[in-house]
Design a protein around this nucleic acid. Structure first.
Lengths: 139, 139
DNA sequence: AAATATTAGTTAGTTTAGCTAACTAATGAT
DNA sequence: ATCATTAGTTAGCTAAACTAACTAATATTT
């Protein structure tokens, strides 16, 4: 089996994803969050007042899927919503409790990520991040 | 929002995955394959006689999940099974039809991957592949 | 200004793909 | 011989995604 460079690249890329996500999911279960919830919580924490449509676009999922995740986060009190200037759109905000949970979960994810990244030099990490971004633009 | 290198790395890494997989899934639908089917078909093509347990381990999924995918591939005539030396284990083989579908799908995936990888130099692709492999070992 | 098109978000329903539990049969270890 | 582990299957369940349809708000076109 002789793979070309790009074939090998994507094979390894996809091979890394699933085990990584499984570990992430496992780690998140300690703070009672699912992957979609964490993904949303994190994006909201970084961009207060984000709308569901923005969240959906950012996560590459459809609006009803986001609607559901938001509902879950509302129910466990991690976020709240308010009406935006555009009366169709809701803005999503973290609650104090949400901020605490976000901080706790961040620490856990940080730990995992550090383990996985190991001693890859920072400049290399950054270079790879750049490449991922370029590639995403081509999709 | 100031992310550390490893945080940015994993953000970009996961950000690339979903759109890439969506495109891959779309491309595969032209030849009537789902992602799990393609993943299995490809691995079987590369390692004739692979067992379901090997496939499950290789894909990071549980055996019943593989059992189902195999059933699907059997039903559309892309694979066949035979008994191995160990009478518990089945060996999976591509049919001629399976080989044809595999070749067709490979060409399609190849095209997509080339688009996405763009003009990233080969040596860089290889270096990144290496890094992915290292990281996977740490999981 | 009115009509039409598009967008925001929700609800309902469906599908997919993963998981666990349980089981039978075969093999390996004690 | 007995017990433990492994291989694969079946059944059942869950989570998370999707599409279709809808109401309300905004933007664009007529």
């Amino acid at each position: 089996m002789n793979l070309k460079s790009h074939q090998l690249f994507f094979r390894r890329f996809t091979d890394l994803y699933r085990p990584f996500i499984q570990k992430t999911s496992e780690a998140l279960s300690e703070v009672g969050l699912t992957l979609p919830q964490w993904s949303a919580l994190r994006l909201i924490a970084e961009q207060e007042g984000m709308t569901p449509a923005e969240l959906a676009a950012r996560q590459f999922v459809e609006k009803p899927s986001v609607s559901r995740t938001i509902q879950q986060l509302l129910e466990i009190g991690l976020i709240e919503t308010r009406q935006g200037q555009d009366r169709r759109a809701k803005q999503i905000l973290l609650t104090d409790h949400g901020r605490n949970v976000y901080n706790g979960a961040s620490a856990i994810i940080e730990k995992l990520e550090r383990e996985v990244i190991g001693d890859i030099p920072e400049h290399e990490q950054n270079a790879m991040s750049e490449r991922f971004t370029e590639m995403q633009r081509r999709l």
